[in-house]
Amino acid sequence: MHEMALMGDILDIIMKDAESKGIKQFSRIDLIVGELSNAMPDALTMAFEIYKEQNAQLFTKDASLHIQFEEAISECIFCKTVYKPDFKISICPSCHMPSGKLISGETFQVLSYEGE
């Protein structure tokens, strides 16, 4: 549970970028959060609301956080089966080899932001 710190990092990234563009107030932030990224979307939303409350001048009143959830998906390097991994992430359900590689689920990015 370190979503407050992560939200601090997210604001740091957009504020640095916004400075160069003369943007002073944010109305929307879009993230992509992978299932295996160690970050929980609900906790990030809560952290966003807390930052918004504490830094009212940085956000418009209706500023919002939008999270695109990225599911964990594995692909077998041998038989190319694409599957939703259970805890045995690397075991291919078709050929049963330990040959599955995660192709999705670890992303954690700031996609975009809106502001004036």
Partner: peptide
């Protein structure tokens, strides 16, 4: 709108 695609 500013696109970033930056790792958190």
């Amino acid at each position: 709108e500013v696109k970033l695609n930056t790792n958190v």
